[in-house]
């Protein structure tokens, strides 16, 4: 018995050593490949920064495109003092914030009702909500375009070429998914909690605001982030529904007005892209865990 133990003991160090070594090699290779992937993944944003810091003269001279020889903030300053860019930014910001508010006002009560207050057809409706999330904007933009024109003809309310009309359209992109992840969060809350609330004489609305909202706060944050980033980066609807320069949102504004100028002012375009990408990136930097929770919730929670 003791002899066997001694034998094992003698063998262990050598084995552990080789295991350790192979682990270390695996780790080194992991880092090597990860650095390669990171270079690929971070190339465009880094390039945006490099070009944003260059002057037009330096870009035109076609020197090393991956290095800034004379960094300057001129492009950023020019954009921040440009009436047009600030208009795009303001349009995007107002639309995104309004859409987030509308989305949460629609999605949270609906998710509570579908997830916790079973009623006739609630399961079917929940599945239906998820299916509508799969209907892409590229299928809906043509009929929506026609409907907006029709609304103008019959009621005189001009929806086309007005940025605020996008506030009505964007919730179709955000509400289904937000409802879906909120259903998941609400269902994960133990049933005893609402029974206790009912016994204490709370109504359903009180139950939602006093118990479910605080407990499901992580889910609400995740859904809010999702709604904001989706409405901030939406490209097709504003591209199809708005034309005039003062009605554009950031992504479309950069693509159509800054690129279609006679001179490609690339330094400024890249600076505009970088600043346009900043709000989602900043939110992501600070709330990464919620962001990722929201991403994975769609497929893993049911």
């Amino acid at each position: 018995m003791s002899a066997i133990a001694a034998e094992i003991k003698a063998e262990v160090p050598a084995k552990r050593g080789s295991l350790k070594r192979s682990r270390r090699w695996a780790l080194v290779w992991s880092y090597v490949f990860l650095i390669m992937f990171a270079v690929f993944f971070l190339m465009p944003p880094v390039y945006m920064l490099i070009m944003g810091l260059k002057s037009s003269g330096e870009i035109a001279s076609m020197s090393n495109p991956w290095w800034v020889f004379h960094p300057t903030l001129d492009n950023f300053i020019a954009l921040l003092t440009s009436e047009q860019y600030l208009t795009f930014f303001r349009n995007s910001a107002v639309i995104s914030l309004a859409v987030v508010a509308i989305t949460m006002l629609i999605a949270v009560p609906a998710a509570f009702s579908l997830g916790r207050m079973k009623f006739w057809g609630s399961t079917t409706l929940a599945a239906g909500v998820f299916l509508t999330y799969l209907v892409p904007d590229t299928l809906l933009f043509i009929p929506l375009f026609k409907i907006m024109a029709w609304v103008h003809d019959t009621t005189g309310i001009a929806l086309l070429n007005h940025w605020w009309a996008l506030i009505i359209i964007y919730p179709t992109l955000t509400v289904p998914f937000c409802t879906w992840i909120m259903i998941g969060y609400f269902q994960s809350i133990p049933k005893e909690l609402d029974e206790a609330a009912l016994i204490d004489g709370a109504g359903y609305i009180q139950m939602l605001t006093k118990i479910f909202l605080p407990v499901a706060l992580p889910g609400i944050i995740a859904a809010t982030i999702f709604a904001f980033t989706v409405s901030w980066s939406e490209f097709l609807y504003p591209m199809a529904f708005t034309v005039s320069a003062d009605q554009l949102v950031l992504p479309v504004g950069i693509v159509t007005t800054l690129i279609k100028g006679d001179v490609y002012n690339w330094g400024q375009i890249m600076a505009a892209c970088l600043m346009g990408a900043a709000p989602p990136l900043i939110i992501y930097a600070f709330l990464m865990d919620y962001y990722i929770a929201g991403l994975t919730a769609g497929a893993t929670k049911g």
């Binding site: 465009p44 945006m48 980033t229 950031l250 950069i254 892209c273 990408a277 989602p280």
Partner: peptide
């Protein structure tokens, strides 16, 4: 995380 429209311009 970067809005696709903007990263595609960089590409």
């Amino acid at each position: 995380v970067i809005p696709t429209a903007m990263s595609t311009i960089a590409w």
